[in-house]
């Protein structure tokens, strides 16, 4: 079999693959640090001491997957229907549907709790354009 202009074609293919696969081979062997959100704020540790366990609005696994829908639902409920109480299906406790006055009261470590995963996944929610994030003491500035 004879390939016309074989030389330039093969060189072209090699160059193309080198460019196209650059992101893959340049990252081979480099392990991406897994995001490890922290739930070790004073408020949570205090809660754990009193109740013997850490508890969120819903189960940890559910929150991990669905917190964004939950937050949207809370937002619509509070803003549009003026309903501000949420009863957990996990522990039947009542929670104040509020980001600043609810979630962040326990999870006062936005950097290690929210940003840890959001940065890893390059998700940029616009919550903090308006909502005020808690002041974080460690790592200086917020």
């Amino acid at each position: 079999m004879k390939i016309y202009n074989g030389g330039p074609i093969f060189i072209g293919i090699v160059v193309f693959l080198a460019v196209a696969l650059f992101p893959f081979y340049s990252n081979v062997g480099k392990v991406n640090a897994k995001p490890e959100p922290k739930t070790d704020t004073p408020a949570i540790l205090e809660y754990e001491k009193l109740n013997g366990k850490k508890e969120c609005v819903e189960s940890k696994e559910w929150m991990r997957g669905e917190h964004m829908q939950l937050l949207n639902q809370w937002r619509d409920s509070v803003v549009r229907d003026d309903n501000r109480g949420y009863v957990s299906t996990a522990n039947h406790k009542r929670f104040n549907m509020s980001l600043q006055n609810g979630c962040m009261q326990c999870h006062s470590n936005k950097k290690k709790f929210c940003d840890e995963c959001h940065n890893y996944l390059s998700v940029k929610p616009y919550c903090w354009d308006c909502h005020i994030q808690p002041v974080e003491k460690e790592e200086g500035k917020s």
């Binding site: 829908q69 939950l70 639902q73 409920s77 229907d81 309903n83 501000r84 949420y86 009863v87 299906t89």
Partner: peptide, 11 residues
């Protein structure tokens, strides 16, 4: 079961 409607409890 994914997302339950909020169980509302007014203050």
């Amino acid at each position: 079961k994914q997302l339950l409607p909020p169980q509302v409890d007014m203050n």
